[in-house]
Amino acid sequence: MQVSFTLNGKPINADIDPRTLLVEFLRDQQSLTGTHVGCETSQCGACNVLLDGVPVKSCSLLMVQLDGCDVISIEGLASGETLHPMQQAFHENHGLQCGFCTPGMVIAGIGIYQRHGDAVTEETVREELEGNLCRCTGYHNIVQSVLAGAKAMAAAEKGA
């Protein structure tokens, strides 16, 4: 089946088996391996991407559902060498240990900022990371990173 959509700002036209999941397409056909496969049952959030601007789990989306949509994977967040403010916040706050969950956490963090702005509380961040698992259990710094990233995203928007 023909599917046309935008991936990280680039138009994509692909002939797709209807069974193909978005995460499979990203990793196997586009070599965008920043989006990870953790549980494959929409529990862990390692595969989060932005679909039309909001975070979703790419292990639970068929490519054929995406015709006309806009997808941004972790690779599409930075502008050249400049990290996205949420990525930079994870870097500065050491919001990762092994790094496996990190791309999904960064995307989830962007969603938290979108919903709550930079006034988001630690309690809300902890609650809204319920769809993301860190098996290093490094949640403390992840939460700090999301809080800092929300402030940085707000600052970047004001500056823009």
Binding site: S42, P55, V56, K57, I112, R115, E128
Partner: peptide
């Protein structure tokens, strides 16, 4: 219901 990503779909 579920988590934010699930609620978005």
């Amino acid at each position: 219901i579920g988590d934010p990503q699930v609620r978005n779909r």
